[in-house]
Amino acid sequence: MNHHQISPSSPSPSPSWKAGWAAAVQRPSEGFHKNWALDGFADQTVRQVVRVTGSGTSARIKLSHRYGTAPLEVAGATIARTDHDAAERAGTVRRLTFGGADGVRIPAGGEVYSDAAEVSVAPFASLTVSLYFARPTGPASFHAQAYATAYRAAGDQLAAADPAVFGETTVSWYYLAAVELADGGPSRADTVVVFGDSLTDGFASTVDGNRRYSDALAERLAGRGTPRPVLNQGIGGNLLLADSAWFGERATARFRRDVLDQPGVRSVVVLVGLNDIGFSEVELPTYRPNPDRTAAELIAGYRELIGMAGAAGVRVTGGTILPFKGAEYHTPAAEAKRREVNDWIRASGEFDAVADFAAALADPADPDALAPAYDGGDHKHPNDAGYRIMAEAVDIAAL
């Protein structure tokens, strides 16, 4: 397979960037499964595949070194249309530059955008981003639970046409925080962000299947003839009110960065609070901090998100917390909090709209439990079919 490297030329004038894909960045941790975040990379190439929900004729990436403690050197980067797995589509590979240079040095805590690269992208197309790190990176800012395969190879394999050199895999994303697209047209304020914990992140959905509820929502919008970018800013284990070494900064602290600062954001669907309710019922190291939160404290946290969204002119849909009877942290006290919070979400009128995920996925014979047809296996996360039902529970007119 002949692999061409085509130099990008920046469209002129400066393009109007639109949302294509994004992931919320977390501090390096071991998480639930093996990953490369704590060790980082040295003389290695990482290849990552993302599915965009927008379209365009040029693309750029955003790299985040938010949790780095020393400068990060990226020696080279490419973007291409995905063929399959780690393979790129021949003739579509573009070398990414940063201020005209092949590499870039990102200060600790910083982030950087690449220059524009000419690449034609259709909605729901997958793009492959490859990053080469010549020097040791130290621990990597990443997104733990991608439900998508990342590939690693020794040495500089940016131009590798043979995907077999990428012999190592994990299911996390590293340093890659966004892909933005431009099509020569004006910017539009039509981006939808889904925001929350593992139920948004897509826990238990099929790896590499793009079966999260965000994916289903984007497909539903496109199927109605109203395609819009849908960005998933969920983090598995995320808490509304507490920072976690494993599960990201608290939702109230990251909401501005992960939602309101996204390009063209128009609306957000918020689904968070289950872990604030459940973690205090179980004693596990990863579940700390786990203070016993009241429903009133959670409601105050939601009001903080509603206030920030309103001040930014962003519509906010509140999602009810799914049933979790049978899960490890379901107790009578936890169930009482879930019901009180959900009653408030439904009846308070403080959200612009409500997505009643709980009602849509509940077992009719036992409303405190997920319907068996939608249970991903742990009695709190949906399966692929359940995530589709979640997408259908969102009022599209309210977005």
Rank of each mutant, 00 (worst) to 15 (best):
M1H: 07
H3G: 04
H3I: 08
P11D: 09
S14T: 07
S16L: 02
A19V: 00
W21T: 02
A24Q: 14
K34H: 14
A37P: 08
D43S: 15
T45I: 04
V49W: 12
G54Y: 11
G54F: 14
R60C: 10
S64F: 10
R66N: 09
G68M: 09
A70W: 03
P71A: 15
E73N: 07
I79S: 00
R81I: 00
A86S: 08
A87Y: 15
A87L: 13
T92Y: 07
V93A: 14
R105Y: 01
I106V: 14
G109W: 11
E111R: 12
D115N: 03
A117W: 13
V121R: 07
A122K: 13
F124V: 10
A125G: 11
L127K: 14
P136Q: 10
A140S: 14
Q145R: 11
A153K: 07
A153Q: 06
Q157H: 12
A161D: 14
P163H: 06
A164I: 07
V165F: 07
E168W: 04
T169L: 00
E180R: 01
L181D: 00
G185T: 09
S187V: 06
S187M: 03
V193L: 02
V193C: 01
V193P: 06
V194E: 01
S198I: 03
D201V: 05
F203S: 09
D208M: 10
R211W: 07
L217M: 01
A222Q: 04
G225S: 08
P229A: 05
P229Y: 12
Q233M: 13
G236D: 08
N238Y: 00
L241S: 05
D243S: 10
A245N: 10
A245H: 06
F247A: 15
A251F: 00
A253E: 14
F255L: 09
V259K: 11
V259C: 02
D261F: 02
P263G: 06
R266I: 00
S267G: 15
L271R: 00
V272N: 07
S280K: 02
S280V: 00
V282A: 05
E283N: 12
E283P: 02
Y287G: 09
R288S: 12
R288I: 07
G319P: 06
P323T: 10
G326E: 02
T331Q: 12
P332M: 11
R339N: 02
D343Y: 05
R346K: 12
S348L: 11
G349R: 06
G349E: 04
E350P: 02
A353M: 10
V354W: 04
A358H: 08
A359F: 13
A360M: 11
A360G: 09
D366S: 08
D368K: 01
A369G: 03
Y374V: 05
G377A: 03
H379K: 08
A385V: 00
I389T: 15
M390R: 14
E392P: 04
A398M: 07
L399F: 12
